[in-house]
């Protein structure tokens, strides 16, 4: 029930925050009766009402706990994904992907071995070549290193 209420508070704060930003927005409505503010204000109001409603009368508690003994692994992978997101632009797709594959598979239980290194190398280069050479999609080779 506590988790449900926490969720409801987040929904409520989101609604209020969005509503506040919507009201603060500049308004121009020449020939447009609604203008750019009305739709967001309406959405913010709905979200706020829903947040209140869920806070006052929560739904039956979900079975899962928000944090458990495996939360560390989830946080570690999320952290890796954040770093990988930045690394693609900074050091290029193949290198960052190689390290991401190696470390993420390690986190999920794979031991670092020559075979694992070979798999990470194969996929980082293979995916890069498939997209850049065959499908003509731009991916940075070296990122900012060679700029």
């Amino acid at each position: 029930m506590k988790t449900e209420r926490t969720g409801a508070i987040v929904v409520l704060l989101l609604g209020i925050g969005y509503l506040w930003k919507a009201f603060a927005m500049e308004d121009i409505n020449i020939g447009d009766p609604l203008g750019p503010k009305a739709f967001p204000i309406f959405l913010g109001a709905i979200m706020t009402v829903l947040g209140f409603s869920l806070l006052i009368k929560p739904e039956a508690a979900s079975t899962e706990k928000l944090f458990g003994r495996a939360t560390f692994s989830v946080a570690a992978l999320a952290g890796m994904l954040f770093i990988y997101s930045i690394a693609i632009g900074a050091i290029g797709y193949p290198v960052s992907t190689f390290f991401f594959l190696l470390l993420a598979s390690r986190l999920l239980g794979e031991k670092i071995s020559p075979a694992g290194i070979a798999i990470a190398l194969f996929f980082s280069l293979g995916v890069f070549l498939l997209f850049t050479r065959v499908l003509d999609i731009h991916l940075p080779l070296w990122g900012m290193i060679r700029r």
Binding site: L81, Y84, L101, A104, S105, F131, L139
Partner: peptide
């Protein structure tokens, strides 16, 4: 342990593109 990281790697190409 390999499938999920590979899925992420390919999905991120989709996002980056």
């Amino acid at each position: 342990r390999w499938l999920f990281p590979i899925v992420m790697v390919i999905s991120f190409v989709g996002v980056y593109s």
